[in-house]
Design a protein around this nucleic acid. Structure first.
Length: 350
DNA sequence: CCAAGGGTAGCCATGTGCTT
DNA sequence: AAGCACATGGCTACCCTTGG
């Protein structure tokens, strides 16, 4: 059954991934990438049938932050070329013997200056869902890729780096009054505003700047989200970088992950073997139209399949792009019964 | 999925009093 | 005047919950 209905986040996320892929493959320049983004947003705004954000605040935050990203793309220092959407195969021992084989696609892989193999996963989502306690779960897919590259390329684990690049955010580095440097993570479109108190402290110490000039300078910098109008010595006390969340890779964790994934595969297979699964689910997890997740995000309950079945045809929303699919990873262990592979993947990593 | 708000713990800038 | 220890208030990161 095709449940790939999509939502505004998957539309924007897909565009963003494609744009970065073209840039790192050398097909486009940074300037073209920014232009393509602006065109994409403009067309989205003009398309009344497009998926919508839930509120204007969410929309503006999302678009403004990503616009700042596209306007300030930094290409990491690297040796050789970038691989984008590179397939990687991972084999793990099945819970009931045999081998589970996964194939997935890494957003970006490259070798850094120190010879480390770097695996990058781009995220356009909010960092709240990537807090420390949620990271082990969020990083399962990435860690499985790391295990796969460790297996196939025979690269030691300590030479493999895994990270999420949280595109909506940046790391602000600033010099404290005691001379020490510190880091703060901020939404890209608001980082100067968030530094207002620090900028004020520094400006106050500058004898050449009068009180009225200060607030003018601050307003100007905040409006432009840039310190370009500030005195040089103040500019030198700030810089921004991509906000990367590093995922620690070690043998014990990966062994545990492989075990968990193998058990999950076993559980999913037995789950899918339940007779009359759909009736079972309707009874066990009934659709709640007041639940935001059910109504807007759940792949099953937002699908045309479900709506047609339930006679909710008036709820069927415009389809922005029928061709886009999001099959990040396929379970090759089940290649001969591939029907269930997407479901297995979604259960594991969705 | 998102933002917002509450609570908590830890860090930092600042001021004060004291000493050298 | 400069250095130090300490208290204070402010700020921030982090986590969790709530509600759309």
């Amino acid at each position: 059954m095709d449940l790939d209905k999509g939502n505004v986040y998957s539309e924007y996320g897909t565009f963003t991934h494609d744009a970065l892929e073209k840039l790192l493959d050398g097909e486009t320049t940074k300037e073209q990438t920014l232009e393509n983004w602006q065109t994409y947003v403009a067309e989205w705004r003009n398309n009344p049938r497009a998926f919508q954000f839930d509120t204007s605040q969410i929309r503006d935050g999302y678009i403004n932050n990503l616009t700042e990203y596209f306007d300030n793309i930094t290409i990491p220092k690297h040796q050789g070329s970038f691989s984008n959407e590179k397939p990687v195969m991972t084999r793990i021992k099945g819970a009931n013997g045999g081998t589970e084989v996964f194939v997935g696609y890494i957003d970006t892989e490259y070798t850094d200056e120190d010879g480390n193999l770097v695996l990058v996963d781009y995220k356009t989502s909010s960092k709240s869902s990537f807090s420390k306690s949620k990271l082990p779960e969020k990083s399962r897919q990435l860690r499985l890729y790391a295990l796969g590259e460790h297996q196939t390329l025979d690269i030691p684990l300590d030479k493999i780096k895994c990270r999420f690049n949280m595109l909506k955010y940046c790391e602000v580095h600033f010099k404290q009054e005691n001379g020490k440097w510190k880091t703060s993570v901020q939404e890209r479109s608001k980082w100067v505003e968030k530094m207002k108190t620090k900028l004020t402290t520094k400006l106050r110490k500058d004898d050449d700047i009068q009180g009225f000039e200060m607030s003018e300078l601050l307003d100007k910098a905040i409006a432009a989200n840039s310190l370009a109008c500030m005195p040089k010595n103040i500019q030198d006390q700030f810089f921004i970088q991509d906000y990367l969340i590093e995922i620690d890779i070690n043998e014990d964790d990966l062994n545990e992950l492989a075990k968990e994934v193998a058990e999950k595969c076993r559980d999913i297979r037995s789950f899918e073997a339940i007779p009359n699964l759909e009736s079972y689910l309707e009874y066990t997890y009934p659709y709640d139209p007041d639940n935001y997740f059910d109504k807007k995000l759940c792949g099953y309950h937002t699908s045309d399949y479900f709506k047609e079945k339930e006679g909710l045809l008036e709820d069927i929303e415009p389809q922005a792009d029928l061709d886009k699919v999001n099959d990040d990873m396929v379970d090759f262990g089940d290649i001969f019964s591939s029907q269930e592979s997407d479901d297995v993947f979604n259960e594991l990593f969705g």
